[in-house]
Simulated assay, not measured.
Amino acid sequence: MSSGPGSLRQLWFRWKALNLPWRRQFLVGFDLAGNTFWQFKDAINANRLRRIVKFSRKTHHADVKISPQWYQWLHHTREAAPTIQEQQYEVSRQHMMKQLAAEADERWKSKPSYLDPPSRQQPVPAVASPESASPPQPEQEVNAAVGKDKGKAPAGKPAGKEPGPWDRAQRGAPSEKWQPASWTPGIAQRR
């Protein structure tokens, strides 16, 4: 962003902005980067005015950026050209949005995530059953290992009830216990 055109250049801009009948094109305005926006009558369709931008000589063509307000004006989406105050407000609004986004990013970084290493991971989700989240009691482990209380159901489960989906998930899938068998080649038969 430049500080704006000098006093001599502003006089020249005012002269070019006058919509005089003999003038082919006239200046509509300029943006904060020093680009000027012009309007002239279309040679093919006299009812419509063409709109163009002349880039600042100080800026390389690859670095030229046109604000959304001027872009809308160039494509006849917006009738009136944006004012300098409107452009300055847009720059300050974008700066404020970047600050708010950085603060939001910091808040999200402070919260644990499942993508973090195990030392910083989130706690167990609330959708898990209470049996799966609580660690087994030492008495239950001893009884299960020795084989006592075969007629009794483990604590927290009613006797004679089928195991639920959470119980099956704790034991693991059948594919987890699968091991490949060794392969021995046989003798090929001739046809």
Results as ranks from 00 to 15, higher is better:
6 G>R: 05
7 S>V: 08
12 W>G: 04
13 F>A: 04
17 A>H: 13
18 L>A: 15
19 N>W: 05
20 L>T: 07
21 P>D: 01
24 R>I: 10
27 L>K: 02
30 F>C: 07
31 D>R: 00
33 A>D: 13
33 A>G: 08
35 N>G: 10
38 W>A: 06
41 K>R: 12
43 A>R: 14
45 N>E: 06
47 N>E: 12
49 L>T: 04
51 R>G: 02
55 F>D: 15
55 F>G: 08
55 F>M: 13
57 R>Q: 15
58 K>R: 10
63 D>A: 14
63 D>Q: 14
67 S>K: 03
68 P>I: 04
73 W>P: 00
74 L>G: 00
80 A>E: 03
80 A>G: 04
85 Q>W: 02
86 E>L: 11
86 E>R: 14
87 Q>K: 09
88 Q>C: 04
89 Y>A: 08
92 S>C: 13
92 S>N: 12
94 Q>E: 15
96 M>T: 14
96 M>E: 15
98 K>H: 09
99 Q>V: 05
102 A>Y: 08
111 K>W: 04
112 P>Y: 00
113 S>C: 08
116 D>Q: 01
117 P>N: 02
117 P>T: 00
119 S>E: 14
127 V>I: 08
134 S>D: 08
135 P>Q: 04
136 P>N: 04
139 E>L: 15
140 Q>M: 14
141 E>V: 10
144 A>G: 03
144 A>M: 09
145 A>L: 14
145 A>P: 00
147 G>M: 02
148 K>H: 10
149 D>V: 01
150 K>T: 14
151 G>K: 10
154 P>A: 13
155 A>L: 05
157 K>L: 05
159 A>V: 02
159 A>T: 07
160 G>S: 11
163 P>F: 00
164 G>H: 08
167 D>T: 08
168 R>L: 11
169 A>Q: 07
175 S>F: 07
176 E>P: 11
180 P>C: 02
181 A>E: 09
183 W>Y: 15
184 T>L: 06
185 P>D: 06
186 G>R: 12
189 Q>V: 06
